[in-house]
Amino acid sequence: MSRRLFAALFGFGLAVSLIPQVLRAEEDHITEAILHTKQALIHGRNGHADLVSEHAKVALSHARAADIAKGNPHTSDAVKELEQTIGESKMNHAVMATGHAEAALTHLEQAK
């Protein structure tokens, strides 16, 4: 077998073997985003706007990664809602931030 053919087949095999890992990584990002959004909701319901912001930032980074990996309208909307969650929590509006976090959670769960 020629070296070029071997290299091509090896590369193709490697690419095919990585597809499940990429799909799993996307699901992991959505799962992590959901987890941190739920934490943000708990803190928001207790009036802790600063902690809402911390969890929403982590959730946002995972939602963006999921949106990049395989974006759909729900991940895009979740990113927007999480950005608004952070903005409201920075203004110490825990109730408004909680509302946006709830909307983000709905979108993330639909994206899963």
Rank of each mutant, 00 (worst) to 15 (best):
T75W: 03
P20T: 09
N72Q: 07
A103E: 12
E88A: 14
I30N: 03
A49Q: 00
E102M: 10
K70S: 12
V58C: 00
K80Y: 08
F10L: 15
Q21N: 06
A69E: 10
K90C: 00
H93L: 10
L23W: 08
K80Q: 11
T98M: 12
H36M: 05
G44I: 04
H62C: 07
L41E: 11
K38C: 00
Q110F: 03
I86S: 09
D28P: 00
R45G: 07
D50T: 07
V52M: 12
F10A: 14
K90H: 10
A33Q: 05
L9K: 07
F6K: 13
L14D: 01
T98R: 12
T98A: 15
H29R: 02
Q21M: 10
K38V: 08
H74S: 12
E26K: 15
Q39V: 07
S89F: 06
E102D: 13
G13A: 09
A15K: 02
G13P: 02
L9Q: 09
V58W: 01
T98W: 02
E88D: 13
K112A: 13
A40D: 04
E109N: 11
F10E: 02
H107K: 13
L82D: 06
H55E: 08
H62T: 05
K57V: 01
S89W: 06
Q84W: 02
L60S: 03
T106E: 12
T85N: 04
V52F: 05
T75E: 05
E88H: 15
L82R: 06
P20V: 08
G87S: 15
K112W: 01
F12S: 13
A66Y: 03
L18E: 02
T37H: 08
H29Q: 05
I42S: 08
P20F: 06
L41A: 05
K90P: 02
A56C: 04
E81N: 14
E83I: 09
F6A: 14
A97H: 05
R45P: 00
Q21V: 12
I19A: 14
A65D: 14
I86G: 09
Q39M: 11
M91D: 15
H43G: 00
S76N: 11
S76Q: 14
F12P: 00
I30H: 00
K90M: 09
M1H: 11
H93A: 11
P73N: 07
